[in-house]
Amino acid sequence: MPLLLAVVIGGLYATALYLILRRSIVKLLIGLALLTNAANLLIFTSAGLTRATAPIVPLGSDRPPAPFADPLAQAMILTAIVIGFGVLAFMVVLVHRAVQAVGTDDLDDLKATDT
């Protein structure tokens, strides 16, 4: 399974970076969204994969039955997902305003306007 996920994560990174390198600013946005997902998956995989139970303590017990998935990585990813969404929303509006103000979505043209 790690092998499969390695390929998936590598593929996600490759497509995300390819999109980020495009001149169209809208493609850059999509690339960023993909990159967020790829990074989350990377953290998830490197924390160790297990098909065991979720880190939830059953009623009547005071600790989860071993083995259980690593709760710390999950907490971090949860934070990252939400923050990624906030950043993406901000980026979308920013790009929208930028395109409106400058009148182009070509990053190479944006270079010329700020000088």
Binding site: A6, I9, G10, G11, Y13, L42, L72
Partner: peptide, 27 residues
Amino acid sequence: SGTLVAALVLLTTTARRDSRIAEYFAE
């Protein structure tokens, strides 16, 4: 870049994996 990230993922599977932090939280 993607290939290197994939290699990195595979490398992490070989790392030591006894999270004492996770154990603390469970406790």
